[in-house]
Amino acid sequence: MLTHAASPPEAPSRVVVLGARGFIGRHLMAKLAAAKVPVLAPGSAELNLDSPDAGDRLAAQMRPGDALVMLSALTPDKGKDLATTMKNLRMGEQVVAAVVKAKPRHVVYISSDGVFADALALADERSPTAPDSLYGGMHMMRELAFKAVCADRLAILRPTLVYGAEDTHNSYGSNRFRRQAAKDGKIPLFGQGEEMRDHVAVEDVAEVIRLCLWQRSAGVLNVVTGRSYSFMDVAKLVAAQFERKIEIQGQARAPGSAIWHRHYDAGDCLRAFPDFRYRDLAEGLAQTHRQAQALGGA
């Protein structure tokens, strides 16, 4: 559950964004620019977080009144191995060191719902973290590391499956479905796409981060809509965006492969931000499709 230090909400004097060029980061930057909030957003060329002096160099650029948003992570599409995990942890170590040294006023860490066990069918913010992947384990370790140094001014946000037009990760889900539909006229599914998942629009993730920044929120929040859909239903919603008929192809599962579902109780978000509502998935996917077409892609 989040608690808010700023009431009424106020824009932060400056936001340091790490990972500003990523999928979520770009949307956050657009929101901050629209609100005319000064931003410091060093790219990896200027500040390689996986270098031993990154923490000192970041701290030297930070001011005590800053808010810090940490989005930087090598996502599973960049590698799921231990080496990638260790690199992610070193990046986290440097940012935590900078927080200790520069003492920003507020910290927002963008984690992942990978911190929960796959078998957890219904989760909320009080569910135990028990990751089944190195990526989820890495985020859990980073959460603990940040909590150890700035729990009183730290918001941990855990987005679930994020969709949007400019997604680069292309993992199994609506973004890949859209590209496959545009390219091949087909959407292949694992099995019959039975698994239930929650899907959140990237614009909504960015808005939740903004709300946290404006209210200087502290605590943990799952960035989830509270409504889950099967991948089959997601595929149908994506297919419906195209004028031509899109074939949805189920396929046999590997013997012994388990089907697991994930639902979220989103009550904490309703209480934390009473005036905010996530967009409906059908509406969000239609918007994503229009944006993708405008960008010249699928």
């Binding site: 909320d124 109780d265 309703l270 209480r271």
Partner: peptide, 9 residues
Amino acid sequence: RRRADWALQ
């Protein structure tokens, strides 16, 4: 706790 949220949801 979850059922207490029913009306809010």
